[in-house]
Design a protein around this nucleic acid. Structure first.
Lengths: 167, 167
DNA sequence: CTGCTACTTGAAGTCGACTTCAAGTCAAGC
DNA sequence: GCTTGACTTGAAGTCGACTTCAAGTAGCAG
């Protein structure tokens, strides 16, 4: 065989991909079911992955870190070229939206940190003034089923504040 | 009645607490089942919460933000006085451990951000050098059931790196 | 060809954090 | 005293992200 396509050396079994990605094989199958990654099959029906799949997985894991669900990750992933590495411009869009997400999360953590430090500073003795004391107020109740921890959408609504130490 | 204890004005119904905390009443009952908050009962068996409960809830929500589970939050909460606001020293311990968690999370996000910016900078054209391209490698497989997204324990193991853009 | 491990499938189970439901009880305004 | 809306319970359901299981097949070393 003298083809230039992915030779058997470039193709990874699910076990190899699992080892290299740090995900369980079952997780990889699950990702495939969701359409996050794709595999070719051997004549015997076993999955074979190209190396590029590692890139896709890295992308997905990074997306999770910035608070995206796998479905959301898929949307972002689908806008990138399937078989080629993304171009600078293509990256730019995705990366920029992540930047803001990351910045937002960092900012939120900084706020929390500041509140906490302030709380230590004041010794939490002046209860009526301490942030934590009357903290939980004024929540925007994102409705039933809402879980705000890390899934806040920057473009949706005026900030839940359920645990934000405002007021 | 001339007692100085919490008068009926200081006691909140579950609905009021839900409104003020931004949590659903069902969530508050769930928290109570977990021992995160407590309620007294009216003669008719309805829950009444003291204002301090808002503080406990704020604490729990903050704990969730820094990546703690409700069970972990309970552990931290149980080390604080139940009916009084915590003293400076008491806060100090909790707050400090949170500080490091927060700092850690911020650091991780900064790392991700840096990788992302680097990726934009290089235009992702030199595939063999791009962080994302061969990113997913070298994962420490935290074992079955492991989900590392935000639940990493600083004191446990040498960093998963499943989605970390190292190597 | 044998033997072994890695692979295949779909269905079901798990975990955390809640929500929903049904059927009934309480509190309060008129 | 009646009505209305907020409250009570336990059990079951949901959601995302996987894992586990059982029974069978592939790939490869020797």
């Amino acid at each position: 065989m003298s083809a230039h396509g992915p030779s058997r050396h470039d193709l990874l079994t699910i076990g190899q991909l699992a080892d290299r990605s740090g995900l369980a094989a079952s997780a990889l199958r699950y990702y495939e079911k969701l359409g996050l990654i794709h595999a070719t099959r051997t004549t015997g029906n076993q999955r074979r992955y190209t190396r590029g799949t590692l890139r896709r997985i890295a992308f997905v894991r990074a997306a999770q870190r910035v608070g995206l669900s796998l479905d959301e990750a898929k949307v972002a992933l689908d806008r990138l070229p399937e078989h080629r590495a993304p171009s600078g411009a293509e990256w730019d869009g995705v990366a920029q939206s992540w930047q803001s997400r990351i910045d937002e999360q960092i900012a939120e953590l900084e706020r929390l940190k500041a509140k906490l430090t302030g709380c230590i500073g004041c010794g939490c003795l002046s209860l009526t003034r301490c942030g934590l004391y009357n903290a939980a107020d004024r929540a925007g109740a994102t409705g039933p089923g809402a879980r705000y921890l890390l899934t806040r959408d920057p473009a949706t609504g005026p900030e839940p504040a359920g645990g934000d130490f405002t007021e």
